[in-house]
Design a protein around this nucleic acid. Sequence first.
DNA 1: CGATTCTTTGAAAACAGTCAATCTGTGTGG
DNA 2: CCACACAGATTGACTGTTTTCAAAGAATCG
Lengths: 189, 189
Amino acid sequence: MFEVFAAYLRTKGGLTDEELKLIKGFTISKKVRKRHFLLQEGEVSHHNCFIAKGCMRMYRIGKNGTEHILRFGIEDWWMADYESYNTGNPSKNNIDALEDTDLLMLRKEHMDVLLKEIPRFQDFVKKLETKTFDISQDRILSNISDTAEERYLKFVTAYPEFNRRIPLHMIASFLGLSRETLSRIRKNA
Amino acid sequence: MFEVFAAYLRTKGGLTDEELKLIKGFTISKKVRKRHFLLQEGEVSHHNCFIAKGCMRMYRIGKNGTEHILRFGIEDWWMADYESYNTGNPSKNNIDALEDTDLLMLRKEHMDVLLKEIPRFQDFVKKLETKTFDISQDRILSNISDTAEERYLKFVTAYPEFNRRIPLHMIASFLGLSRETLSRIRKNA
DNA sequence: CGATTCTTTGAAAACAGTCAATCTGTGTGG
DNA sequence: CCACACAGATTGACTGTTTTCAAAGAATCG
């Protein structure tokens, strides 16, 4: 299973075989079956998880019990609760699998070592972080400035794969809409 | 003016006098008067700017000409368009001063040198970045899960100073509401 | 003081949420 | 293989919230 991760790091990050060998030494493989949890509220998010195959979501439970989805992840995406991961605080979120999922995980302590040892890896991760931040800024802008329909259309354009694989009611939750509203938007679009 | 910046870095970042001397060598002072721009759409955000005194906002112009405010900054906050700053792409946003503002700025190239040379500074900045990211995650969650009134109340609780110093119609823009709606929310709260 | 910016108010229209019922497809166990 | 349960999607009627438009009232600044 490591080979999927290696291919990704080679192609997207330009890492060498020596560097990959070093990373491999710390990498943990894990399978999470559909509807099973990778992380539950109250636990600490110790690992940064690369998704080799499958689909996950991170969500928070509101006071009336509603699920609010903060992010999705599919192949080639990373998944963790970065707030908990970086601070060591217990997570307020849950992460579970929407499909049977294969992960390659690195403990934060090991990740930190690798980042220090492999400048190329550090640069690559830094770029990912920057991009993740930009995306969240765009999402905020969309939330405060776009109509529900515009928000949905941007979502479909940016993430056609999510739209295909993820149930409507979860996309609605991600966009901050009721499923009924999203269902009607889809009909008129 | 550097002394305000130095005090901040000493207190919040634990930097030593030698380290401060190094930073001082790269620091540029700048004053931006009320209603004047620090950055305009199309320019590259080359500097990371520490606000020693005053108040600024970053906003984007929508297609119908509406201003959508992405962030505010006051004393002890940093201001830049980090998308442009990190990538070198022209900014899609504007930054202007809501009050006469004193800044201490570091060019990205110099900032990168300082981060490499001063591990304590790097750790400190890393923590700030983590926190900034967490805050934007919270804002997204609030946008997709809270009512307009809850969003406003969280804003007031988290940033009482903003609420005091910033005009209502700009807070409305930040929250994604019309000024009329926010005015009515304030009356009933 | 006059001009500009900011805030409030009312009324109508647009929008999204809720509730309840129904429909669809999928998969499981008898 | 069928019956049934279950997760997901849709629809209609109704309610509530937010926007829009228009006007006017404060506050601030030169």
